[in-house]
Computed example of a mutant assay.
Amino acid sequence: MNDVATALAAPEWAASAREHAERADALTAGRRARAAVGETHPVDDFLFTYYSYKPALLRRWHPGLGVLLQDAGEARGSWRWYLVEGRDAIVDHERIARERHLLLTGVGRILRGARSRRAQFGCFGLHEWAMVYRQPEHRHPAPLRLGQTDTDAVVDAHPLGCTHFDAFRFFTPDAVPRNRLALTREQQSATEQPGCLHANMDLYKWAVKLGPVVPGRLLLDCFELARDIRELDMRASPYDLTEWGYAPVAIESAEGKAEYVGSQRAFAERAEPLREELIAVTDRVAVGMD
């Protein structure tokens, strides 16, 4: 039986769901407006195209583990991963533990692996530069801020220390052997570290994958963090995004490096409690696996 830690009366959980939807709508307003007229944005749309999660997913509020929603049986009875008990409903973490065992253990392993390591702040966002290194065709339509020759020179002048496989896998063939580590998917939990922008953006991905065991507030906090990180990620990239209102973080200079590291440290601090909450969720669900 799913343990009940607390119970919410219908007016209380309905208000929480409504407030959550309003927050989600505010966070996704730009994406929804652009989608309605067929427009795109090189920074804001990343979280919806790369991770492939639609704005509607963010609107759906879940209370998390052990919260009984009174008089929600009819409203939530058709929702996946919910158990109806009389007129009430609760997230069925026992079923999730059984049916999503591999996912839960995999996500938990990656999160704990990152937590166990010292944060590194010496990459300077060069993963984006390595994705265009000695490559005449690029994934993004924006022009290179320094041009191809000088962009390549920046990469030539710096060691590459990427620790995130899903960034590394987009490196150009010439950039791959320049990285300090030959990253693989199988070793992801052994190489990720909490200073990495992409590892901290991925907290949003893990929150989505863990599903309704993650409280709605935590999901949106992870999304908001990922959105803010992406802005730095692209400002520090080799692309010229001034027409979109983004001033570059010129990591080829000492001043730009200092600015990047300062922001990177701040994001790592924001990510730390969110990672801890996600780990706590996987630990609680794991009880149902025993």
Rank of each mutant, 00 (worst) to 15 (best):
R76T: 08
R117Y: 06
L218G: 03
A7Y: 03
D3T: 08
A33E: 10
Q148R: 07
E259D: 13
R145V: 02
A17G: 07
G64S: 07
H158S: 10
K209Q: 14
V176F: 01
H20Q: 01
A36K: 11
L225H: 09
L210A: 01
N2H: 14
Q70W: 05
M131I: 09
V132H: 04
I251F: 07
E186I: 12
R178N: 05
E22P: 00
N2S: 10
G106A: 12
A72W: 03
A97I: 02
V43I: 15
V285Q: 04
L146S: 05
R32Y: 03
D283Q: 13
R98I: 10
T163V: 09
H138A: 09
Q264D: 13
P177I: 12
A167Q: 14
L8S: 15
W206A: 07
D152N: 14
D221A: 11
Y246D: 02
D44Q: 06
A258Q: 14
D240F: 07
G113H: 01
S263D: 14
G125R: 01
I229Y: 04
G161I: 12
L65W: 00
M201G: 01
D233E: 02
C162M: 02
L8Q: 05
P159G: 11
S16K: 01
R95N: 06
A250R: 14
A175I: 04
Y246E: 00
R100E: 10
W206N: 08
P194Y: 00
M234F: 07
A199Y: 12
M201W: 00
L203N: 07
R230F: 15
L68S: 01
R95G: 11
V281A: 08
H101S: 15
K54R: 15
E255L: 08
R230I: 10
L274A: 12
Q264G: 07
G147C: 06
E99H: 11
W13M: 02
T105I: 02
M201N: 01
P42M: 04
T28E: 05
Q187V: 07
L278Y: 01
I279P: 08
S116M: 05
D174L: 11
T191G: 06
M131V: 13
E19N: 06
L232K: 09
D152T: 10
V249N: 03
R112I: 09
G245N: 12
I90A: 03
W81R: 13
P173C: 05
M201I: 06
N200C: 15
L103V: 11
N179Y: 08
F170L: 14
A56F: 12
Q188W: 02
I90R: 04
A167M: 12
A250L: 13
